[in-house]
Structures are given as structure tokens and as C-alpha cells.
């Protein structure tokens, strides 16, 4: 199409309409394009991140189990007195498996070291520097409530008495929810303390903290649940 403004004076009569038509058409095509991209983005956030996250979490679990089977004789489960704090996992590495019966019988997710966005796309994130599974202190874990597989979608349905079960090569740790869900501010890092003030725990113990975002699709607050270790079952000792 020739540039409208280069037209000679004898052809100037139909030009303004042509310009207008071109402008309107281009504008509506742009609008349609932007709308389509936005719809695609919604599909990406709501659906595709879940597909990739589910795939990644399954891969993490499979890798975890494979690694556990290769390194057969598990170290003894930490008993009272033995500080299990010593184990340091590389960032982004899965090291435990979590079950929450309240979230459904099939709900099992890998727990990875660290809480970077990339880590949280592949499972739940263990806050660096907090306690080890079953250890004295506070084992703190963050997870997505929405998008990336929605692992903590049913977080608000947790109630005191619910079980949170952790499994690692050393054993199985069953925690019982004591407090929550509690709404707090994103800056409230005291919820991760070895003895969190708002949790109602009064002395040192073996605690677990779960965090996710609140409201469901927002980020102005966080939801917190605190649990306390109820039972430790050491893994069956493999014969040498």
C-alpha cells in the first residue's frame, strides 16, 4: 500500500478515508493481539506452570527415592541430645518428602533446600538455616498456594490436630499442628524462630512451620501454621 501522504493533489479526495481505515484496522489488530497475548498469559499462569511444576515435583521425588535406595544404610534417626543440625544440603536439592493427610491421600511433595523462586517451582522450600527434619528448633517450609502446581492450595483448611509427616532416609517424623492458620505480615520473620513467640510454644522443642501467601491470589500477607513433633520412627536399619 502506497503512503497516503505522498499522494498527488488529484488523488487527495479518497485519501483521508483510506488513512482512517488503515489506522482503525491497525489499531483493532493491535488490540486483538494484546488481548490474545493476555489470554495466553492467563493460560500460562493458571495451567502451564502447574503442568511444569507437577512434572518437576514428580522428577524430584523420583530422584530422591533413587538416591535413597542407592545410599542404603541410613544414618540413625536423631534422638534426644543428638543435634541433627549438622547436615547441610546444597541449595535446590530435594532432601525430604512431605505428606499432609488433610490435603488429600495422594498429596506428597518433595522438600527442597532453599526458598528461591526457582526452587519453589520444583517443590516446597526449606528455609535455609532452620532446623533439620525432626531436629530441635524450627523446621520451616514455604510453598506456593496458587500457580506452580498449587501445593498449598488447601492451606487454610489445616486445623490444630492435623498431621504433617516428613520422611527422609533417617526416618519418618510426624508433626501435629498446634497453632494456625495465622495471618501475618511478610516481614514477620520471627515466625521462623526456634521458639516462635506467636505460636504458643513456650520452651525449646522440635517444631515445624509452614508458610504460604495470603490472600489466595495476593501477596500482602502470609499464612502460617505451627506444628510440634509428635513421633519419630527411625528408618528400618538395613543389614550390613
Amino acid at each position: 500500500m502506497r503512503s497516503p501522504w505522498r499522494a498527488g493533489p488529484e488523488r487527495s479526495r479518497p485519501r483521508p478515508e483510506a488513512v482512517l481505515r488503515l489506522a482503525v484496522r491497525t489499531f483493532s489488530e493491535l488490540c486483538l493481539t494484546v488481548g490474545t497475548v493476555i489470554l495466553l498469559f492467563v493460560a500460562y499462569v493458571l495451567w502451564w506452570t502447574g503442568v511444569t511444576a507437577d512434572r518437576a515435583m514428580d522428577a524430584e521425588l523420583a530422584g530422591l527415592h533413587e538416591r535413597w535406595e542407592r545410599t542404603a544404610p541410613a544414618p540413625p534417626a536423631p534422638q534426644a541430645g543428638a543435634p541433627p543440625q549438622a547436615v547441610r544440603h546444597p541449595a535446590g536439592r530435594a532432601f525430604a518428602e512431605m505428606f499432609v493427610p488433610r490435603f488429600g491421600a495422594g498429596w506428597r511433595k518433595p522438600v527442597l533446600e532453599g526458598t528461591d523462586p526457582d526452587t519453589l517451582k520444583r517443590g516446597l522450600g526449606h528455609y535455609r538455616g532452620t532446623a533439620a527434619p525432626g531436629g530441635t528448633g524450627n523446621f520451616a517450609v514455604a510453598g506456593h498456594r496458587r500457580t506452580h502446581g498449587d501445593p498449598f492450595k488447601d492451606f487454610p483448611r489445616l486445623r490444630p490436630g492435623d498431621q504433617v509427616i516428613l520422611k527422609d532416609p533417617a526416618g519418618t517424623y510426624t508433626y501435629t499442628v498446634r497453632t494456625g492458620p495465622v495471618r501475618t505480615l511478610p516481614t514477620d520473620v520471627a515466625v521462623l524462630d526456634p521458639v516462635p513467640v506467636k505460636s504458643g510454644f513456650t520452651g525449646p522443642g522440635r517444631y515445624l512451620t509452614l508458610t504460604t501467601c495470603d490472600p489466595e491470589w495476593g501477596h500482602s500477607h502470609r499464612l502460617i501454621v505451627w506444628a510440634e513433633l509428635a513421633e519419630t520412627r527411625p528408618a528400618r536399619q538395613a543389614s550390613p
Binding site: L40, F41, Y44, V45, W48, T49, T115, D116, P117, L120, G125, Y127, A142, G143, H144, R145, R146, T147, H148, F152, T184, P186, T187, D188, V189, V191, L192, T211, T212, C213, W217, G218, H219, R222, I224
Partner: peptide, 23 residues
């Protein structure tokens, strides 16, 4: 989309100083 997605609030699931660790 992977670049644009962290600009949305759904990634903020951690407690930290400021809103840094997960953006």
C-alpha cells in the same frame, strides 16, 4: 512469560526482611 510471571504476586510465599527472597 517465565520472565513476566515473577512480576505477579503469586510467588510471594515466604517471610523475609522486605519482600526480597522471592521477589
Amino acid at each position: 512469560f517465565p520472565w513476566a510471571e515473577p512480576l505477579l504476586p503469586f510467588n510471594d510465599v515466604t517471610v523475609d526482611e522486605g519482600s526480597g527472597a522471592t521477589r
